[in-house]
Write a protein that binds this DNA or RNA. Structure first.
Lengths: 118, 118
DNA sequence: AAACGCTATCTTGTATTACAAAGTAATGGG
DNA sequence: CCCATTACTTTGTAATACAAGATAGCGTTT
């Protein structure tokens, strides 16, 4: 498993909900949106389970619609519960991301750090 | 499992390494450092497995030292491999954290977003 | 029509890891 | 001697990103 996989844990659901909130979207298009948003190479084997999970939990709902070119598409919409959940996760994210980013900046020049214990 | 648990996945190792890089430290003290850094309530059931994993992978090494009050302490140091790994994870973190934060900002006012599909 | 490529979705299995829970052990104070 | 505190370890569980594979509709080319 890659580092990236681990970093995405838990936050991918919120990313998907954030995109669905902006506009109703179907799975295949979603992976392209994620790519544009700066999260490339999220495979459909990842995305569809996320969508199913979100729907099962009542955070999104779906609606089949025909396509001009190709098989039917399942469009997803954010529910009210989904909006609440998204807000909750977004808050938690900020709470975690901020201190982590600070820690990982590591004071720019680490050669300086020679503590008593070293 | 909480949202927070998921968000911490994969990044906790790097946080621990970042702290160990600053100064040699033992497990018990580490949880207090994490607290101060803005990551409270990381239990020892989480921290010690992290330390064991990092050591097994050669990213940190340890050294027993007597304590003035209580049992001996196992101090941890970052290895050269650890420094490299930390840098790798830090880069990946920035790559993920930035687009995620953007997505989760959700354009401040979402009431406006009424697309054709809604 | 047969073959192909693209669009689109779903399912199964695996590896990883935060955390709870429980246990072990050393020290010093009462 | 008991107990609190410090300090470390082990075991088990739940959650989830992803690979891999299966299914199927549509248009274009052969």
């Amino acid at each position: 498993m890659t580092i990236r996989s681990q970093l995405l844990k838990g936050i991918l659901d919120a990313c998907v909900m954030a995109i669905v909130e902006e506009q109703a979207i179907y799975g295949y298009e979603l992976s392209q949106k994620l790519q544009k948003a700066g999260l490339p190479d999220i495979s459909d084997g990842t995305i569809y389970p996320v969508l199913l999970r979100l729907q099962k939990n009542g955070f999104i709902r779906s609606e089949m619609r025909p396509s001009d070119s190709g098989p039917n598409r399942k469009y997803y919409f954010l529910t009210d519960n989904g909006t609440e959940e998204l807000e909750r996760i977004a808050k938690e994210w900020m709470l975690i991301a901020s201190p982590v980013s600070n820690l990982l900046k590591r004071g720019e020049n680490n050669a300086k750090h020679k503590t008593i214990n070293q």
